[in-house]
Design a protein around this nucleic acid. Sequence first.
DNA 1: TATTGTTATACTCTATAACTATA
DNA 2: TATAGTTATAGAGTATAACAATA
Lengths: 151, 151
Amino acid sequence: MIESRLVNLPESLASRTGYLLARTARQLSERMDRALEPFDLRPRHYAVLAVLASVGSLSQQRLTEILQIDRTTMVAVVDELEKIGYVERRRDPADRRAYRVDLTPEGQAAHGELRGVVDATQASFFSRLSKQDRADLQRVLRRFLCDDERE
Amino acid sequence: MIESRLVNLPESLASRTGYLLARTARQLSERMDRALEPFDLRPRHYAVLAVLASVGSLSQQRLTEILQIDRTTMVAVVDELEKIGYVERRRDPADRRAYRVDLTPEGQAAHGELRGVVDATQASFFSRLSKQDRADLQRVLRRFLCDDERE
DNA sequence: TATTGTTATACTCTATAACTATA
DNA sequence: TATAGTTATAGAGTATAACAATA
């Protein structure tokens, strides 16, 4: 499926917040994929860089918990980031089963550039909304995901 | 990956509306999958039933346009709905290349029951939000997807 | 020539199971 | 026994290409 010009969504779907959410998320995902394609990365690679940049070195296990990515998938993501020199694995001296995954200087620089791309893509994607609507969306989603320990 | 108790999302991700959107959509998708599992259906099957119930008989081509599902995927979805007797294909006399896909009486009954399941699942999923927040989310997403003809 | 529906196929994503090394 | 990381593998999901029937 290519793209997404909005065809007259029937009321039975337009009135379902869940359907709107799924559909919006899918459009955004396609946009982000395209925006990161020139860098041969996917959004999940950027997410790992962003977490490491803000939290510091972490085990793969901690990364899977924070990002909700399966550990077998995380192996591949870290492999790919390591191969292009953006992260490095070092054995944790305190627990030699685990790695400490950390950004390299190249990874820090890449994160800075990619952050610009990701932010610009997101801004462009949501630009059709008013400032107030964007703020509402951010507030509601954040409250939904963060003010809560349920399930 | 199993589930999703929210682990202290770093600010660098919590402040990105796009990331929050993607993550929320993924949680909802898992919930909907589980809710429809007892019926051996996926959300896309429900979406087809809902569109047919509200719009009436449509060609597969029109269904793909409305739901943004690839036409090769739509073949399988309609196959499965036809096999369990919820829809039927009839050649369109006005264009014999196309089918008219329509709900059977069994499909109409199933749609009614499934609508209850889907609505209850969605209500439960969003129940942690205030009424106002739910209304804001619905309003913003709908405006985003529907008040617009861009891309 | 273009379009609807179909099949075959390939590619990605993700999850499961089993392994290793450490704890 | 349990956990961190890994590998192999299998199952979905989705996309591409090619085809038949029809326009």
